[in-house]
Simulated scan of single mutants.
Amino acid sequence: MEDINFLKSSADFSVVQGKPLNGWTKFVGISYIVYGSLMCVGILTAAIGIPIIFAGLRILRAYEDMKRFSESNSYYNLANAVDNLNGSFKITGILIVIGLSFMALYIIAIVAIMFLGIMAFR
C-alpha cells in the first residue's frame, strides 16, 4: 500500500464523501455480480463469469471502504478502496484484452474463409 501521508496531502477527497460515487459504485458492483452469475449458467461462459463475479466483489469491497472513509475520514479506508478498485480494473482489463484478441482472431478467420471461398470459384 502506498504511503498514507501522501494521500492526506495530495488531494481533496470530497468527491468520495459525496453520495453519488458511493451509490454508483454499489450499483456497478451488484451489476457485475449479477452479470457474472448469468454468465456462469453455461459451461464455457463460466470461464468469463467467475472473474466478473470476483471483480464485482472487489467493487463492493471498495464501496464499503469508501463508505467507511466518508464516516471516519480514515485514509487507510480510502487506500483500501483504491486498492480494491485497482484490482477490479485489472480483472476487467484482462477480460477486455482477451475478448478483443478473440474478436480479432474471429475477424481474421472470417476474412480467410471468405478469401478461400473466392479462390475456390476461380
Rank of each mutant, 00 (worst) to 15 (best):
F115M: 06
D3T: 01
V82D: 13
V28C: 05
A11F: 15
E71G: 05
P20I: 12
I43P: 06
E64W: 10
I110R: 10
A109L: 14
T45F: 07
Y63P: 02
E2K: 14
F54A: 02
A81P: 01
A62N: 03
R61S: 13
A79T: 03
G29E: 04
I94E: 09
Q17K: 15
K67L: 03
G117I: 08
I4G: 01
N73Y: 08
C40H: 08
F54W: 03
A120D: 03
L44T: 06
L78W: 00
L21N: 14
I59C: 02
L116V: 13
F6N: 07
I52Q: 07
Y76H: 06
C40N: 14
E2Y: 12
Y76C: 03
R58E: 10
A47N: 04
I91K: 04
L116T: 12
F115L: 07
M1D: 12
A112Q: 11
A47T: 00
W24Q: 07
L116I: 14
E71L: 11
F89D: 06
N80F: 08
M103G: 11
I118F: 08
L60F: 13
N80A: 13
E64C: 07
N5F: 12
I33E: 07
S70I: 00
V34P: 03
Y35V: 05
A81T: 00
D12N: 15
G29N: 08
G42D: 13
F115K: 04
T92P: 01
W24L: 10
I30V: 15
L38R: 01
I53A: 06
G49H: 05
S31C: 15
P51G: 09
S10W: 10
R58D: 10
G42P: 09
N77Q: 13
D65L: 08
I118Q: 05
L100N: 00
K67W: 05
I94K: 10
I118D: 02
G93W: 11
F27M: 05
I98Q: 14
A55M: 01
G29T: 04
I118L: 09
R58I: 05
F54P: 00
L57F: 15
I110A: 10
F121L: 07
T45W: 06
G36Q: 02
F6G: 03
L116N: 14
D65G: 07
T25N: 04
I94A: 14
D83R: 05
V16Y: 08
G23F: 13
G23H: 10
G117F: 10
M39F: 01
T92S: 09
N77C: 09
R61E: 12
A62F: 01
I91M: 09
G56R: 01
S70H: 04
L78Y: 03
